[in-house]
Amino acid sequence: MRFPVNHALPLAALVLLGSGGAFAATRSPQPASPATGPAADYPVVVGEPFTIGSTVWTPSDQLNYDAVGNAIVGEGVGVTAAHKTLPLPCYVEVTSLETGRTILVRIERRGPMVNDALIELSPDASAQLGMAPGSKSPVRVRRVNPPEQERAMLRTGGRAPERMATPDGLLKVLRRKLADQSPLLPPPSTPPTMPKGEPPVVSSKVAAPSAITMKPVPSAKTAPAPKPSKPAVAAPAIAQPAKPPVAATPKPSAKPSVEVVKPKPDVAEKGAFVVQVAAFSSEASARKVAAQLGGSVSPAGKFWRVRLGPYANRAKAAPALEKAKAAGYRDARILGAD
């Protein structure tokens, strides 16, 4: 028994297969997924120099960037910021010099386009730092290399954990650095010098001026040598031939030599000038700094002064003043000894 054959079925199958292939050929490819992980921070853009007013700003990929200046509140999404010279993108720690609060921020834009501001924070970044909208705050900006987990938080619009609060001693150093620089010029991006310094180097250098103060002592011994003027005063006594004892002449010459030598060491010991490094409300802090710089501590009312010296004159006190300033105490000065 033969069954009827439907010749239309093979033709329909061929049509379906052809249309399916044509649909596959005309279908657009899937879009590429966005980069994640460290690849999301590349490519890094540095850019060409540009001018704001009469000041030229030159972007550079500086790894140890560390500067102080003013922060303003601008635009942007997430905990981000705009900077004039750092590469885009990169990550910085922003510290408020008023509170010591420190946050992690992602630099994504070029700016701010004013010379008296170092960084422009987004609303979310300024809120995390504790800045009021529309305000200006002194800050420290330090480039860092955070872990990928914190980078991902900032890239997705979140917040990274706050850093440890900056101690008061470092805040004082940073405030002095900001006060000493001109706000209308590109600020120096050099790490601040902490007061702790290097005790062995400082102590050896401080000893040098004290050695110099001892040099006038031998010169004082040679001073009486050209003073045979007093024996010359005894020359009128030659009119008495019976009294020309030679032994009488060395006695007056010996006395002045002793008298001249005594005041010189007194001047070297007491001195006329000292270098006042700083004044502290805590005696322990003052003695710690004095031990580091090779100085002494003296009370002054409710404060404890750290001083170097004494020195015979300002020229001999000048090297000690430079060492105190190099250690971070730019308010150090030469004063007359009490």
Score class of each variant (00 low, 15 high):
Trp304Phe: 15
Val297Cys: 05
Ala272Met: 09
Ala254Val: 09
Ser296Cys: 00
Ser296Val: 06
Val246His: 10
Val289Gln: 09
Phe303Leu: 15
Ala242Glu: 13
Pro245Phe: 10
Ile238Lys: 11
Ala242Arg: 12
Pro231Leu: 01
Thr249Val: 14
Ala268Asn: 08
Leu293Cys: 10
Lys251Val: 14
Leu293Tyr: 10
Val260Gly: 03
Gln292His: 03
Ile238Arg: 07
Pro299Ser: 04
Lys288Leu: 15
Ser298Leu: 14
Ala284Arg: 07
Val246Gly: 11
Gln276Lys: 08
Pro299His: 07
Gly301Glu: 10
Lys302Trp: 02
Pro226Glu: 14
Lys288Thr: 12
Pro299Tyr: 09
Ala235His: 04
Ser257Arg: 13
Lys251Gln: 05
Val297Trp: 02
Thr249His: 01
Arg307Ala: 15
Ala272Thr: 10
Arg287Met: 04
Ala254Thr: 10
Val277Ile: 15
Arg287Tyr: 02
Phe273Ala: 01
Lys270Thr: 14
Ser229Thr: 05
Ala248Gln: 12
Gly294Leu: 09
Pro236Trp: 08
Pro231Ala: 01
Ala272Trp: 02
Val275His: 05
Pro263Gln: 04
Ala232Val: 08
Phe303Ile: 03
Val306Leu: 10
Ser281Gly: 12
Ile238Trp: 05
Val274Asp: 02
Pro236His: 11
Pro226Phe: 13
Ala235Met: 09
Arg287Glu: 12
Ala247Gln: 08
Pro245Val: 11
Ser298Cys: 01
Gly301Lys: 05
Ala223Phe: 13
Phe280Ile: 04
Val246Ala: 03
Lys264Ser: 02
Ala312Arg: 03
Pro250Asp: 07
Ala225Phe: 01
Val306Tyr: 02
Val260Leu: 14
Ala268Arg: 07
Ser298Glu: 14
Lys270Tyr: 10
Pro224Cys: 01
Val260Ile: 14
Lys264Gly: 00
Phe273Trp: 06
Ala248His: 04
Pro263Tyr: 12
Ala279Arg: 05
Tyr311Gly: 04
Thr249Gln: 06
Gly271His: 06
Lys288Gly: 15
Val260Pro: 00
Ala254Lys: 08
Lys227Cys: 07
Lys230Glu: 04
Lys243Gln: 12
Glu283Ala: 14
Pro265Ile: 14
Phe273Gly: 01
Ala242Leu: 15
Ser281Gln: 05
Lys230Phe: 09
Pro236Glu: 11
Gln276Gly: 00
Val261Phe: 05
Phe273Lys: 02
Gly295Glu: 08
Gln292Leu: 06
Val267Phe: 07
Trp304Leu: 03
Lys302Cys: 02
Arg287Cys: 00
Ala286Gln: 04
Pro265Glu: 12
Trp304His: 14
Ala290Phe: 07
Ala278Gly: 03
Trp304Gln: 06
Val258His: 02
Lys243Glu: 09
Pro245Ser: 14
Lys264Met: 15
Ala237Thr: 04
Arg307Val: 14
Ser229Leu: 11
Lys243Val: 06
Pro263Glu: 13
Trp304Tyr: 15
Ala279Asp: 05
Pro241Thr: 13
Val275Leu: 13
Ala312Asn: 07
Ser281Glu: 07
Pro226Trp: 12
Ser253Cys: 07
Ala234Asn: 06
Ser296Pro: 00
Glu259Trp: 07
Glu259Leu: 15
Ala232Pro: 03
Arg305Trp: 03
Phe273Thr: 00
Pro236Asp: 11
Tyr311Trp: 10
Ala242Asp: 15
Val289Phe: 08
Arg305Ser: 09
Ala247Arg: 08
Gln240Thr: 11
Pro231Asp: 10
Pro250Cys: 10
Pro250Tyr: 01
Lys230Gly: 04
Ser282Cys: 09
Ala242Pro: 01
Ala279Leu: 06
Ser282Leu: 13
